[in-house]
């Protein structure tokens, strides 16, 4: 074996493999709705925390079951813990949902782009969340409330199917009590116990107390809800270029290699999930793209 005489390129130090999940400890697990929980994770001893930008996601791994892309729902100012809100929808999310305190969940990430908070500086901000669209927006809300003076009015519209499907229920009451934030909730249908709004999030848009030309909007929820919300915002005068959406596709690798999440030229996992709406609108309007 004389291969050493051949001047092959020297081994370059590689970064950590992107494929290795790091086992994080489940510190807390709280029930949000019948099928949704929130877990709080901490890194193993000696492993640094994972700073993240609001809007990013992690690949969470349930040992022996697999991985799922889950947005980060915690406070970016407290990166020593990772907070994820998970709806039990398939085998992986079901296993993750069942992760009890003391057990272990693997983490790869954070991945993707974040909400462009810098572009919202000095402007009114509208957050519109549908269903499980609130968790990916919550880090942005934490961040804005911490630096409240950087922003004009902050309006949040949160829509869910029924009152029972609202996540972060207690926290929403706190937010609704704040004078420097208007947080509206609306549901598709409700019983008499609900005194809040019933109707779509789009119906709340005309009433937003904003200066439309100086407003940035972040939307997260079902694609069709974001599409109609963007229309309603545009009708109110919010410039197209100031509307951002968080998209969901089949994210498997997180680094733009597996190919599953492509939307036109974009890898949603790497170039998104947050996009400027005017940049992706043309792709969203093509059937089965």
């Amino acid at each position: 074996m004389a291969a050493s005489s051949i001047p092959l390129p020297a081994s370059e130090p590689l970064g950590a493999s992107p494929w290795i999940p790091v086992p994080f400890r489940v510190e807390e697990r709280a029930s949000e709705t019948a099928d949704t929980i929130t877990i709080t994770l901490t890194p193993p001893k000696g492993i640094p925390s994972r700073p993240f930008r609001p809007g990013q996601f992690n690949m969470l791994y349930a040992f022996g079951v697999g991985e799922a892309a889950i947005s980060i729902a915690g406070d970016p100012d407290r990166p020593e813990t990772l907070v994820h809100t998970i709806r039990s929808a398939g085998p992986v999310s079901a296993a993750l949902s069942g992760a009890a305190p003391g057990s272990t969940v693997g983490v790869r990430g954070p991945y993707g782009t974040g909400w462009p908070l810098a572009s919202a500086s000095g402007k009114d901000v509208v957050l519109v969340a549908g269903g499980l669209g609130l968790p990916p927006l919550r880090p942005a809300l934490y961040e804005m409330l911490r630096h409240r003076d950087r922003y004009g009015r902050i309006e949040v519209i949160y829509g869910a199917r029924t009152p029972k499907d609202l996540v972060y229920y207690r926290q929403i009451q706190e937010w609704r009590g704040r004078s420097d934030l208007r947080f509206q909730t609306t549901v598709d249908a409700a019983g008499r116990e609900w005194y809040g709004d019933v109707g779509l999030v789009t119906a709340r848009v005309p009433d937003l107390r904003i200066d439309p030309s100086h407003t940035v909007a972040f939307l997260c929820g079902p694609e069709i809800m974001m599409k109609f919300t963007a229309q309603a915002l545009a009708a109110k005068g919010v410039p197209d270029g100031s509307i951002y959406v968080s998209l969901e596709r089949n994210m498997k690798c997180g680094v733009g290699l597996c190919g599953h999440c492509q939307l036109g030229p974009d890898f949603v996992c790497r170039d998104g999930p947050v996009f400027r709406y005017q940049d992706v609108r043309r792709f969203l309007s093509v059937r089965e793209l």
Partner: peptide, 12 residues
């Protein structure tokens, strides 16, 4: 671009 380690290792 994805930082895949095994491809890089084999390739070199």
């Amino acid at each position: 671009k994805a930082g895949d380690p095994s491809y890089a290792e084999r390739r070199r």
